[in-house]
Simulated scan of single mutants.
Amino acid sequence: MPALRAKIDALDAELIALLAKRSGLIDQAARIKLREKLPARIDSRVEEVAANASRLATEHGLDPLLADQLWRLMMEHFIAQEERALAKGRT
C-alpha cells in the first residue's frame, strides 16, 4: 500500500503542476479578453470545454459525469480568475 500511495501522491503533484500551467494560460486569456473587450464568461466555450472533457473521459475509460463536474467546477474558478483580472485591468 505505501508504494501505491506514493504513486498517487506523485500523480497528484503532476496534476497540480498541470493546473498551475492552465492557470497561467487563463491569465493570458484574460489579457487578450481585456484587449478585445470580451467577457470572462463565454457560454459557448464553457459548453465546448465541458463536452471535450466528457468525450476525452469516455475515450480514456473515465466516468464522463465526473469529468464534466470537475471541469465545470474548474471553469467556474478560472472564469472568476479572469473576471478579477478584467476588473483590475479596467481600473
Rank of each mutant, 00 (worst) to 15 (best):
I16M: 09
A85G: 02
A13G: 07
A85E: 03
Q28S: 11
E14K: 14
A17L: 11
D43L: 09
L25M: 04
L38E: 04
R72C: 05
A51E: 10
T58C: 07
A13R: 11
L66Q: 09
R84T: 03
D68P: 01
S44T: 09
I42F: 04
L65E: 14
I8V: 15
R35I: 08
R72K: 08
D63I: 02
K21F: 15
E76M: 08
P39A: 08
L25H: 09
S54R: 14
A40E: 02
A13P: 05
Q28L: 12
P2E: 15
D27S: 13
L34E: 00
H60E: 12
K37W: 02
E82S: 01
A67F: 04
D43F: 01
R31Y: 04
R35A: 15
A13T: 09
R90P: 02
A85K: 03
Q69V: 11
T91K: 09
L38C: 05
K37D: 07
A13K: 10
L73K: 06
K88N: 10
D27L: 11
I16E: 12
E48P: 01
L62V: 15
W71T: 13
A51R: 05
I8P: 03
R41D: 11
H60V: 04
A29N: 08
I26M: 08
A20V: 11
L62P: 03
G61K: 04
K88A: 15
R41C: 01
E47L: 15
E59F: 10
A30D: 04
S54W: 00
E36H: 06
D9W: 06
D12A: 14
E47I: 09
D27M: 01
M75K: 03
A29P: 00
M1A: 12
S44P: 02
A53L: 06
A51H: 02
A30G: 08
A51T: 07
L62Q: 10
D43T: 13
R90S: 09
R22D: 15
A50G: 04
V46Q: 06
A80V: 05
A87Q: 11
A13N: 03
T91H: 11
S44V: 09
E48R: 08
P64Q: 03
A30E: 00
L19W: 14
R35D: 13
N52F: 14
K88Y: 06
I42H: 07
A3K: 13
A53D: 01
D12W: 07
D63N: 14
A80H: 09
A53F: 08
L38F: 05
R72F: 05
A57Q: 02
G24N: 00
A13H: 03
K21I: 04
K7G: 05
D9Y: 04
R35G: 04
E14Q: 15
Q69Y: 11
Q69N: 12
L18V: 07
R72A: 06
A3L: 10
I79V: 12
